[in-house]
Structures are given as C-alpha cells and as structure tokens.
C-alpha cells in the first residue's frame, strides 16, 4: 500500500462523508469539491491523466459551481434548525450499508478478478491518440453526446425561464 493512494482515498471518503452529513449546504458543496479533487488524484494514480483533468474541469469547475448557484438561488444556505434527514433515516443508512457490504464481500471473495501477477499493463494513450480515436472509432457516440448536451442546454434554459406574469386581473367594478 503506497502512501499516495492512502492519502487520496482517505481524503475522498472523509470529504464525501462530510458533504453528505453537514448542516450548512455551502459547506456541503465545498466538501464536494474536495471529494472530486480526491477522485481526480486517484485517476492520476491510475495513469489516466486526461480523465483526471476532465474530472477537475467538469466536476469542480461546472457541477460544484452549479450546486453553489442552486443553493443560493433557492435560499437554502445557512444553518437551519429543521431535521436534515427523513425520519426513519436509519432505514436509508441500513440499505446503503447492505449494498456496500454486498459489493465489498463479492469483490474480496471473488477469484475472477485479474491479480497483480497476471495483469497486462495497458499503455496509456496520449491525448493525441485519444483525440484521434474520438474522431475515428468513436465519432458516432461523440456526435450523440454533443446532441445530448445541446438538448440538456436548451432544456435547462427553457426550465429556467421565468414564466410571464398572468395578465392583469380585470378591474373590479
């Protein structure tokens, strides 16, 4: 176990717990930023540099900022005295714990995963090769994703439009 992995994984998990449990929504958004940086560090450790920087650009630069904007627009920043969770919150926690337990036991107990000795290290493609693959092999998925992003952009803009005020009520007699 190398130290870099332990630090990145510990930081990611601790920040994720904080992001899901803090009371102030702005603090939650900032902890979410730390979580996404930790995951980007894990991507770097795995040798996927381009994905790591894309993660920082998209998740930290766009999604976390969007969450902060939504928090401010809906006036949910600040500390509230109301309960944070649904009342039988132990049920949700128990379900999540069951899912994690099932995944971890199956990962640790399965003999199907490739082990260290048998692994063949894939050569990480450079950004240039990645771009060439995106423009040749994966050009159709790329166009579909472009269409999806355009549709999402238009949809979000239409949803965010302020509805026109209803016409002035008829004058009272």
């Amino acid at each position: 176990m190398d130290a870099a992995f332990l630090i990145a994984a510990g930081l990611t998990l601790a920040a994720a717990v904080a992001a899901m449990s803090l009371r102030n929504l702005i603090h939650c958004a900032l902890c979410l930023v730390v979580t996404f940086f930790g995951v980007a560090a894990l991507f770097l450790l795995l040798g996927a540099e381009f994905v790591s920087f894309a993660q920082v650009m998209v998740y930290v630069g766009a999604i976390a900022i969007l969450i902060v904007f939504a928090t401010l627009l809906t006036r949910s920043a600040g500390v509230t005295g109301e309960p944070l969770a649904f009342q039988p919150w132990l049920v949700g926690l128990g379900i999540a714990g069951l899912v994690v337990g099932a995944i971890v036991t199956s990962v640790a107990g399965s003999g199907l995963l490739p082990t260290e000795s048998s692994r063949i290290v894939a050569a990480a493609p450079s950004t240039r090769e990645l771009g060439e693959q995106l423009m040749s092999t994966y050009v159709l998925p790329l166009e579909v994703v472009g269409l999806l992003l355009t549709a999402a952009l238009i949809g979000a803009a239409v949803l965010g439009l302020r509805e026109p005020k209803p016409s002035t009520p008829p004058p009272k007699p």
Partner: peptide, 10 residues
C-alpha cells in the same frame, strides 16, 4: 464501493 455507499446513503 464505499464512495457509492456514501452517495446512496445521502
């Protein structure tokens, strides 16, 4: 898996 579980619990 742990990250997934934390997100699911939240």
């Amino acid at each position: 898996a742990l990250l997934f579980g934390i997100g699911l619990a939240g």
